[in-house]
């Protein structure tokens, strides 16, 4: 096998895969943030907590009800989405006439509550979640070993991301959504129930976070803080990509995951901060973000 700059290909490919997996989570989470931001104009600070909630719901379904991974993959996002519906109706909808910063502060408070509650009942040590049997093991690709589950995470996230993109950009429902993003008053005048659309959009966005949480459960142990630090990196991803474009959010997510993986190979000390450094550079060169449309 070839060697690149003295790095064995196993190491390089291994980190690339790891980067791609992190990128999958960045992409799904920043996609959810972008969808919510598009219509609600708020930054959903509780996104990390809702991602954690997805993982925990999957774990609870298995532990208390014996419901396995595949059902959890459908049920957990629905449960998380349902909590989103309630949150939007009871709290967020009261803030739309105010400065958008209040939405951020409110969802930050919600994140503290959710994370605090789970820390109270489950401690900070993680709960293990088994990889479903059909996806255990892996493939030997000759140059590296590819665990099946990790491949599945990448595939599943790509399907969900592009499914969402297709729905928003290519269907009638998506057209309503995009129209409401541009001018909610006018869309309402055409007889479309905009408040309900906003509510469902928020639920869908946090449902995506819940889905990412289920995907993450078998890889990382399920613990109350799993989303807390991740969401800050996702914020940086969102600043780099700009939230104006759905495809932009997806591509930036995967791209930055891969860049982070490469950094871990060539300069391990920098891997924790490389995304923030890229954010600084983007702010200097193109402050509105790579795919942004001003803000």
């Amino acid at each position: 096998m070839f060697e690149l700059l003295g790095i064995p290909p196993q190491v390089l490919m291994g980190q690339l895969l790891l980067g791609l997996i992190n990128g999958s989570f960045y992409a799904v989470l920043s996609l959810g943030l972008a969808v919510i931001f598009g219509l609600l104009n708020i930054i959903n600070f509780s996104h990390g907590a809702q991602y954690m909630l997805g993982g925990f719901v999957a774990w609870m379904l298995l532990t208390y009800f014996g419901i396995g991974y595949w059902w959890a993959l459908i049920l957990a996002p629905l449960v998380v989405g349902a909590t989103g519906l309630v949150l939007e109706r009871l709290a967020l909808s009261k803030l739309y006439h105010l400065d958008h910063l209040y939405g951020l502060l409110l969802t930050f408070g919600v994140a503290l509550i959710i994370q605090g509650l789970f820390r109270n009942y489950y401690g900070i040590s993680g709960q293990p979640y088994q990889i479903p049997e059909i996806l255990s093991g892996g493939q030997n690709l000759g140059f590296m070993f590819l665990p099946n589950y990790r491949a599945w995470v990448v595939v599943a996230s790509v399907i969900v991301c592009f499914g969402t993109w297709f729905m928003i950009e290519k269907t009638r429902l998506g057209a309503y959504l995009r129209a409401a993003t541009e001018n909610p008053v006018l869309v309402g005048a055409f007889g479309i129930n905009v408040p309900r659309m906003i509510m469902l959009t928020y639920a869908f966005g946090v449902g995506l976070a819940g889905f990412a949480g289920v995907l993450a459960a078998p890889i990382y142990s399920v613990n109350p803080n799993m989303g807390a630090d991740l969401i800050i990196v996702v914020f940086a991803v969102v600043v780099i990509g700009g939230m104006g474009s759905i495809m932009g959010a997806i591509l930036t997510g995967y791209g930055l995951g891969v860049i982070e993986g490469l950094t871990r190979v060539f300069y391990p000390e920098g891997s924790a901060v490389v995304i923030f450094v890229i954010m600084a550079i983007v702010l200097m060169i193109k402050p509105e973000g790579l795919f942004g449309r001003g803000a």
Partner: peptide, 25 residues
């Protein structure tokens, strides 16, 4: 100097991200 290039919620996210960088440091 970097953060004031964005406004509103982006400003909040940028300052948070840089603070996390300081944390990692």
């Amino acid at each position: 100097a970097l953060a004031i290039r964005r406004q509103g919620i982006y400003f909040a996210m940028v300052t948070l991200a840089f603070a996390q960088m300081v944390y990692f440091f």
